[in-house]
């Protein structure tokens, strides 16, 4: 692949043409906040945390869906961007009911960690306090809408990796909701293979193992890389 040269935070760097800006920034060891991005899944540019400034454009660009280009001049942590990131995180905290102290994911949560890393010490917005249900119909897992940030990692992993497409979204705007099957209790879904991939990729305490209590839930993403590498190398091709 041809190499492209670009400038990131005033330093000249090179990347592979076709590669996303986010993956290059990661290679360079620049810590970019992300929530909807997960290596191994398709990118959707929804959480807007990885936005960067490109010289010559008034617009901001989500690094996960922006391919690197020759001559790009990128800034990743300007004051403006840092402010926006904090505001976006505050909006997320205000959107649903995040009470970390009583959350099963407390201490292992990507939202909680991003907030702390990005300097969020309080939320300036009204807490919206929506009245949301939990779905505890599945024999192994629990879905708590109160903690969901609509990143759709669960939707994508189930569709793209597991191939079951149990999850999807319904409603729009702030009323969007993750649904199982045709908006039925998760436990009633015939297509769910009970693999638990969605639980493992969920960044927050929205999808958890049944029976876990406050601060007990920890998630493992490495299976994704493992599966994808295995598939690429045809490690399980027994035909």
């Amino acid at each position: 692949m041809p190499v492209v040269t670009l400038t990131v935070n005033d330093e000249l760097v090179s990347g592979q043409s076709g590669q996303s800006l986010l993956s290059l920034l990661k290679e360079l060891g620049i810590e970019m906040p992300t929530l909807c991005h997960l290596e191994g899944l398709s990118d959707r540019g929804g959480c807007r945390l990885c936005m960067v400034e490109l010289q010559g454009s008034k617009r901001l660009f989500a690094a996960c869906v922006t391919p690197v280009q020759e001559g790009m001049v990128v800034y990743t942590h300007t004051e403006r961007l840092n402010n926006y990131r904090r505001m976006i995180l505050e909006l997320l905290f205000a959107e649903r009911n995040h009470v970390c102290a009583v959350c099963v994911q407390n201490g292992h949560c990507e939202l909680q960690t991003q907030a702390a890393k990005n300097g969020m010490d309080s939320v300036r917005y009204d807490y919206l306090v929506p009245d949301l249900p939990m779905d505890a119909s599945h024999e192994r897992y629990v879905l708590d809408h109160n903690r969901c940030i609509l990143c759709t990692r669960c939707v994508r992993v189930c569709d793209e990796i597991e191939g079951a497409h149990v999850w999807d979204l319904m409603g729009r705007g702030v009323n969007s909701r993750v649904i199982a099957g045709l908006n039925q209790p998760w436990g009633d879904s015939d297509s769910c293979t009970k693999c638990g991939k969605c639980v493992q990729v969920c960044p927050t305490g929205a999808l958890t193992l049944r029976g876990s209590t406050v601060a007990e839930m920890e998630k493992q993403h490495d299976f994704l890389k493992w599966i994808l590498t295995g598939r690429e190398k045809k490690q399980w091709d027994y035909s």
Binding site: A101, N106, G107, Q112, A116, G119, M120, D121, A215
Partner: peptide
Amino acid sequence: EFEPEMRLFG
């Protein structure tokens, strides 16, 4: 001023 870990809610 807190280090990020000290800023965690919960």
